[in-house]
Amino acid sequence: MIAARHLTKKFGTILAVDDVSFEVKRGEIFAFLGPNGSGKTTTMKSIVGLVKPTSGKILVHGIDVQMHEKGAKASVSYLPQRVVFPENLTAREILYFYASLRGISRSDADEALEKARFNGFSEKYIGEFSGGMVQRLGLAVISLPDTPILLLDEPTASLDPQGVKRFREFVLEQKEQGKTILFSTHLLAEAEQLADRVGIFVSGKLVAQESVDGLREKFLKNKTIEDMYLHYVETFEGQHQ
C-alpha cells in the first residue's frame, strides 16, 4: 500500500533521511518511532508529496508520488504535526471546504461533524477552540474522505488523556474499516497498543522495522518496547557521533 525505496532527502548539507526503504501493507498500522529530528516527519511528508526526495522513490497505492502527485494524494489523508485552521471560520465551514476539495457532499461533511461529536461547536469560530478541539477537527477532516491510507504525524502531541483515548478509538475504528495507517509518535505505549509494526528512526536511518512481538522475541522476553527503543537509539546514535 505504501512503499519507500532507498528514500534519501538532503536539506542543503543536512542529511535528513538516509536511504530508507520500507513497506506498509494494506490494513496495517505502522508506527514511526524515533527522537526529534530523526527523519520521521520528513519521510511522512515525502509520502504525501510535501517534501521532494533527493533520490529514491515512493509508491502510494501503486502510484509513484513524484510522477503523479495529485493522483497519489487522492489516496492519502494526512494530518500534520501541528494542524492550524483560520481562526475566523467555523468548524462546519472548515469541513465543507475540505469536503469540496475532495468532491464530497455537504451532507457527508455534516455527518462527519456529528460523528466527531462537534454538536454545539460546529458554528463556533476556530479562534474559540482549544488545542485539543482543533486536533479533533483535524481528525474529522482527514476521516472525511474515504481514502485507503491515513498518515498521522504525532497526532496525540496536543491532546489531553481523554483526547488520546478518543484518538486510539479513532485509529482502531479506521483499522476495522480496512484502512492502512502510518503514524509517528513519541509515546511508546501508544505504538505498542496500536501498531502492528514499528519502524525506529535514528539520525535519518530506519534502523529497525518489525512487529512489536517480533522485536520482543529478538530480545529478552521480559524487556519492554521502551527498553528496545532506547537500545536502538543509543546504539545507532553512538555510531553516528
Binding site: K45, V48, G49, L50, K70, G71, K73, A74, V76, S77, Y78, L79, P80, Q81, R82, V83, V84, F85, P86, Y98, L101, R102, G138, V141
Partner: peptide
C-alpha cells in the same frame, strides 16, 4: 505552516 501542509496534502 500547519494550515499550508494540510491544504497542500489535498489532491490539488
Amino acid at each position: 505552516k500547519g494550515s499550508a501542509e494540510l491544504l497542500f496534502s489535498q489532491p490539488v
